[in-house]
């Protein structure tokens, strides 16, 4: 893991929101890979051996939702490395955080929460990954 410049997979369909998170995370020294939907994200996952230090997923995506993507990625190979997942949503549904955790997400944030909270949560998840989740070279 390169803690100085962690790799973040960002899946967000709204271009402006994606641009915002990219600007924010890049300013923190993170490398951001942007995908607009589940299909693009899975294609990227399968096309490279690189694995992200963190995944930031939008809950509502055009071809599914963040939970589907969570399960798709974590279900592909049980023994393989699973990066920590943060789900973002503008839904406001009180049942969502529990559903996200059940699907394997480590954090759930409302998109209108303060950006500082997003940054601190992102860093916490990256640092708390643990040695068994070390990124394979």
């Amino acid at each position: 893991m390169n803690i100085a410049s962690p790799l973040v997979l960002l899946v967000e369909d709204d271009p402006d929101t994606a641009a915002l998170y990219q600007a924010l995370l890049s300013a923190e020294g993170m490398e951001v890979v942007r995908c607009g939907n589940c299909r693009e994200a899975l294609a990227w996952w399968q096309s490279t051996r690189r694995r992200p230090d963190l995944m930031v997923l939008d809950m509502r995506l055009p071809d599914g939702d963040g939970l589907d993507l969570c399960q798709e990625i974590t279900g592909q190979d049980q023994a393989a490395y699973h990066p920590p997942i943060m789900v973002l949503s503008a839904h406001g549904d009180p049942r969502l955080p529990a559903r996200c955790r059940q699907a394997g997400a480590r954090a759930f944030l409302d998109k209108l929460d303060n950006l500082d909270q997003l940054i601190s949560t992102a860093w916490r998840l990256i640092k708390d990954r643990g040695p068994d989740q070390a990124l394979p070279v």
Binding site: D14, T17, L20, R60, A90, H91, K111
Partner: peptide
């Protein structure tokens, strides 16, 4: 209402976020 919430919040996320930046 879900769509309304999403569609009104999405521009607000960008608006609020970029203004904060």
């Amino acid at each position: 209402l879900t769509t309304l919430s999403h569609e009104l919040k999405t521009p607000m996320v960008s608006l609020k976020g970029f203004l904060q930046l």
